[in-house]
Design a protein around this nucleic acid. Structure first.
Lengths: 253, 253
DNA sequence: GCCTAGGTCCCGTTG
DNA sequence: CAACGGGGCCTAGGC
């Protein structure tokens, strides 16, 4: 149950000031709706002329300014920022400061039509399935999905140029570098290439590169071929039923 | 000014139902605060056990579920999704459906402590400064920042494997590929490498690769060196004052 | 603390 | 429409 809850409609600047100050003291969640302009200065800098928006201030310092459309906040400051509010004449100034890197968001309210503060209790954590991590675990349990005879030597093998998802050997003793992705992109191929090139300098035998993903784009397959790499399509639904859904290497075609 | 605004404290399921349904019809912005659990099924899938959260429903279909901490929503559905609400006994079910890709977010409210709908007017757009685009424009105006004698031939030159930020020639007529980034990463080096390799096959003379960025990490510089590439550090603040802040090529050290 | 890579990334642009 | 790369990305995990 929400222990504490306070709401004001069409508050005066002073009322908003008090509500926000008290909510900040108590570590409550704050929602403001009103006409405001925003200035941002930090890693980049930006100006947002006045408009009606929702401003969301969390107890961990998170500040979000949402326009009426779009998934992402138009302006924000991440957790750890510090917010202060003050009144200047009929304007309300909400300022959020982040220290590292130094970033400042300044919201000037011309009018507030709604102000609310809430004490939220929430100890639950998201349980997410179908991540890349799970794909890697699947491959460790079923190395045949990479190819019959494949043997995992190391998971998350660190190198000078990043961490190899799966490092192992094929049936003939060749080194195999496996890069795992949910969605295979150019970037994934390049990552694989970086690792393969590195190992080629160190390992004696052949070094093969394999990109395993649930989805591939056209361009990626072409680039894979150019690099001499192979790929496997993982079908997440088939995995539990068996070890189907394995593609042959590109060079088989 | 906010034309329409409706707020209910501790609404009954029926009251919430009516408020949300009417707000959806009118394309208004909806804020709900209460105890709820969430199920997500789509590109991935997830479960979030009950807790007190802020639910944000926008007129463009955006759905955001925010916990009391964190910059990002814990669950969401992007713009273009369709929301429906219905009552089952004392529970309220808010369901959001996205078609491409198919994704479903189902929120089960055990209790709503606040419901509000707002008609927001906002035609303003963010003016953002300090982007990569601006860095490229700076280089075009001051090609000396790449190096004395550098001449831009083409901006955003498309290739089979992506678009080259800047393509030009040095004082000796060699091809120069310039990749521009705010923050230099391994990925940026690989991108540069892709382009350089491609042009080496096509262009007659030498092909040089230069990575220009405002910030570099140690590992990136090492990889650049291994690839035989050069780099330049751009200081955004110095740019307007002149053409200082140019680094020599790695091989000068 | 820096650095690296993942993400239900979202988002705009381009083919 | 797919696909590719930017982002004030944020966030988690290593060292």
């Amino acid at each position: 149950m929400v222990v504490e809850l306070r709401v004001v409609l069409h508050p005066s600047p002073r009322e908003t000031l008090h509500l926000v100050e008290e909510a900040l003291r108590n570590g409550e969640t704050i929602l403001l709706v009103g006409l405001c302009g925003v200035e941002y200065e930090g890693r980049s800098s930006a100006t947002l002329p006045p408009g009606e928006r929702v401003v969301f201030l969390k107890s961990d310092g998170t500040l979000l300014v949402h326009q009426r459309v779009g998934n992402n906040p138009i302006c924000w400051n991440p957790p750890g920022s510090r917010a202060k509010i003050r009144q200047e004449d009929e304007l309300l100034l909400l300022e959020s400061e982040r220290l590292k890197p130094r970033e400042n968001v300044k919201i000037t309210f011309l009018q507030v039509v709604f102000a609310g503060s809430f004490e939220l209790v929430d100890h639950a954590e998201l349980e997410l399935r179908g991540t890349e991590r799970e794909l890697v675990e699947t491959l460790i349990q079923h190395p045949n999905l990479v190819e019959p005879g494949f043997r995992v030597v190391k998971r998350e093998k660190p190198t000078r140029y990043g961490v190899i998802d799966l490092y192992g050997m094929d049936g003939e003793g060749n080194t195999v570098v496996v890069e795992v992705k949910r969605l295979a992109s150019f970037q994934a191929v390049q990552q694989l290439r970086r690792y393969v090139d590195l190992l080629k300098q160190r390992e004696p035998g052949e070094v093969r590169g394999v990109l395993v993903a649930t989805r591939f784009t056209r361009g990626v397959k072409a680039l894979l071929e150019d690099c001499g790499f192979e790929y496997r399509v993982l079908n997440p639904r088939k995995i539990n039923k068996g070890e189907k859904g394995v593609q042959s290497r590109l060079t088989d075609y």
